[in-house]
């Protein structure tokens, strides 16, 4: 059974449909990237999952527990980091974490060592005795992440956790998420910075106007989404022969030659590309490279979503 299961989830704000029959499954141990344009319904979904918002209809289960029926059980296994959050005035970081630790019913004896651990994880140990309200945005974000981790939740819902982080912190965040993932946690992370999600997540979902447009492994989605692949072939020799061969093959839309390098627009699928390679090799053409221009999550995003509100 999947760790997070969403079935036919719908949410209205007045007449406005924020979520429209959303279905989604996230397996245990996945890092799931939740992508969508502004106002797509990401925050709404995450808030419903974290029992903060009541859906109009549909169901959501986390670890087999119904979000609507047993919110208290859900809170025990869930770590939620909101997209905008406040901090308490006049509390030092350690006190702030202590308060949330107590609020999560962690016994006082264990709390101190747990706090040390999360401080270490989020690289805030040196700030433990400073006031949270004077932190910069990025540091506040890290403190909030530390707070989210304090009760060792099985599932993490992070709403744009990296938006205020500096490049170094982002890389560290990526490492941190990997570590958490290795510990068996399931992570749902929403973000706008697609290049980052691309190499952080193993599965993604794209949402727009409250509908899930695509979900699955990053590679699979790329396959599904892109009709036209860009191939680059470089040969050591026999360039003319190669050109003739390429021209004879169906499914190559556009061939652009630059000395020994060919840039191809193709609508071949994966098998087609393998066949092309075989043909080249059978003709005895010394192929140096045959590579697909990987494209990026951004292209996928742009081709899947339509834009406009």
């Amino acid at each position: 059974m999947a760790m997070i299961e969403i079935q036919h989830l719908t949410k209205h704000y007045g007449k406005f449909v924020a979520l429209d029959d959303l279905n989604l499954e996230i397996e245990q141990g996945d890092i799931f990237g939740f992508i969508g344009p502004n106002g797509a319904g990401k925050t709404t979904t995450i808030r419903i999952l974290s029992t903060l918002l009541e859906p109009a209809s549909g169901q959501a289960h986390i670890d087999g527990i119904d979000v609507r029926k047993k919110p208290y059980e859900i809170k025990k296994i869930l770590g939620y980091m909101p997209d905008d959050f406040g901090v308490y005035d006049g509390m030092r970081l350690r006190e702030y974490l202590d308060f949330f630790g107590a609020a999560y019913k962690i016994p006082a004896k264990k709390r101190a060592s747990i706090i040390d651990d999360v401080l270490q994880l989020t690289d805030l140990t040196s700030k433990a005795d400073e006031f949270v309200s004077a932190f910069s945005r990025g540091m506040k974000q890290r403190s909030c992440l530390a707070k989210t981790l304090i009760h060792d939740p099985k599932v993490l819902l992070l709403d744009e956790p990296a938006s205020g982080l500096d490049p170094r912190a982002r890389i560290e965040m990526k490492e941190l998420l990997k570590t958490l993932c290795e510990m068996g946690k399931t992570i749902l992370i929403s973000s706008h910075i697609l290049s980052e999600l691309g190499d952080m997540c193993n599965t993604i979902g794209i949402i727009e106007h409250g509908k899930l447009l695509a979900a699955g492994k990053v590679g699979d989605i790329m396959d599904k989404v892109r009709e036209v692949r860009e191939l680059r072939i470089e040969v050591l020799d026999k360039a003319d022969e190669t050109e003739n061969l390429l021209k004879s093959i169906d499914g190559l839309l556009d061939i652009e030659r630059n000395e020994n390098v060919f840039n191809l627009q193709s609508n071949l699928d994966r098998a087609g590309i393998v066949a092309l390679n075989t043909q080249l090799v059978q003709r005895g053409i010394p192929v140096l490279f045959l590579e697909e221009d990987q494209g990026s999550l951004e292209d996928v995003f742009l081709s899947v979503t339509k834009g406009g509100f």
Binding site: Y80, F85, G86, A103, Y104
Partner: peptide, 16 residues
């Protein structure tokens, strides 16, 4: 105030 500061969601997510 908790609401305006954005703390209420976090409070409601705890086991309090």
């Amino acid at each position: 105030k908790e609401y305006e500061l954005g703390n209420l969601d976090m409070l409601r997510m705890t086991l309090l």
